[in-house]
Design a protein around this nucleic acid. Structure first.
Lengths: 232, 232
DNA sequence: CGTTCAATTGATCAGCGTCAAACTAGGTGG
DNA sequence: CCACCTAGTTTGACGCTGATCAATTGAACG
């Protein structure tokens, strides 16, 4: 790894506060790799040799069973993935592939576990990260179990809206096929859900979203921070 | 808290390996409480004042939205709950109530956070715990998104079967209404799913389960450790 | 300009939820 | 100890949500 890349990693939230000594151990034998869109990074069931950190691009985590698969989440930089597998030295529960051209840092899992043994600060940083991931998955489960597909879409759009700075117009950053899978529906159904939301001030053509009546959409979607707010 | 109770807590996996000093901090101001069945312990959205540890009985975590609720998981001793909320000092994402008469230890959340700051070993223990919880939720999401309700039931029964020591006869330890909610279906649908599994060697009357053809059930259920194995 | 794949649309169907009613079991009080 | 009451469970009929299949349109890219 080049020195400039190492510095970049060093400055990430996860590693900023750790000692130089710990960081040395961590970074030894690490890679920075670039992948084109659609590259398989890991496959569920494999052993976790490396902790992955997405620096640039985007990566989707997905899982399969009995012939079909579902997108679990799509990550944007900066994000770790397979942290839990690394911590527990257990097989991956999800597969990962790049959605767009991406840069990923690979830290040997054993390095992570070595540093954990001797650096309580690092343990706490990862503990915070892990707890946040846990809460994200819980929110996702609530979303899946408590809402219909149209309601899920409505709330998803509101989240995008908010993340885009409350502008009424913004872009979908995932393709609809993937979006459908993420939200637990088929592409066809997503199309129909979009139509259904016209009645609540939603216009979508291509990846362009235009919310003509945010208040109406909110009335319909009934968002709650206990499901829809990322940092809560 | 009585000394005998304190010793009991001390001997739990989570606390066994920590220093006396750290444990002192942790246990100060802690409670051991008993609750009858059906007691509300916490409500989603509230702030996490106490880390809960289920010592005896059973507790269900559930969540609601827009008038309906769903059971997220049912805990058996010994289990922590609301660990993530405690760690992040954030509001509960789930509510909790006792399903049967239960004993629960309540550790002030601030104690937990204090000890984390100074005891790296404890951080690592909680990190392991947290990572395991995370993986459990991921498995649950895969179960929900990738399987039909009958398939979920089939795999659930196989898990019970295995946990009961591979005997062909065992008891359901949750009532069917709750079980249905946990698996993301209605009680009516669960009844029909049970019927559907007769063709695969499943007989259920009341809470008594009899698997007459485990091999057939496994052929149908197609279980995988990446969803169905607890410690994986 | 054609190829390819995503997105949409329509028709159909299966899974699952809803509603209502009958049945059962467990617990309570007489 | 029994009768009753309440709540869980089951069954049937029905309807809605969402999946599937097939065909078309649309858009991106070489």
């Amino acid at each position: 790894m080049r020195q400039s890349d190492i510095s970049k990693v060093r400055s990430l939230d996860l590693f900023r506060d750790m000692s130089d000594e710990s960081f040395e151990i961590l970074i030894h034998g690490a890679f920075l790799m670039s992948f084109p869109a659609g590259s398989d990074l890991i496959t569920e069931g494999e052993n976790s040799d490396f902790l992955h950190i997405l620096i640039e691009g985007s990566v989707e985590l997905f899982a399969g069973w009995s012939g079909h698969e579902t997108v679990m989440v799509t990550l944007q930089p900066v994000a770790t993935f397979i942290l839990a597998a690394t911590i527990r030295d257990a097989p991956y529960l999800m597969s990962a592939r790049t959605v767009s051209k991406s840069s990923v840092v690979l830290l040997p899992s054993s390095n992570v576990r070595d540093v954990l043994k001797q650096d309580g600060t690092f343990s706490n940083v990862l503990l915070q990260e892990m707890a946040q991931c846990y809460r994200a998955v819980i929110k996702n489960t609530k979303n899946l179990k408590l809402r219909s597909s149209v309601e899920r879409l409505a709330n998803y759009l509101l989240r995008c809206h908010r993340r885009a700075g409350n502008t009424p117009e913004f872009d979908l950053l995932v393709e609809k096929k993937k979006l459908a899978s993420t939200m637990g529906m088929t592409p066809e159904n997503l199309s129909r859900a979009i139509k259904a939301l016209k009645a609540h001030g939603v216009e979508i053509s291509g990846s362009k979203v235009h919310l003509t009546d945010v208040a109406a959409l909110e009335r319909f979607a009934d968002p709650t921070p206990l499901i829809d707010q990322a940092d809560y």
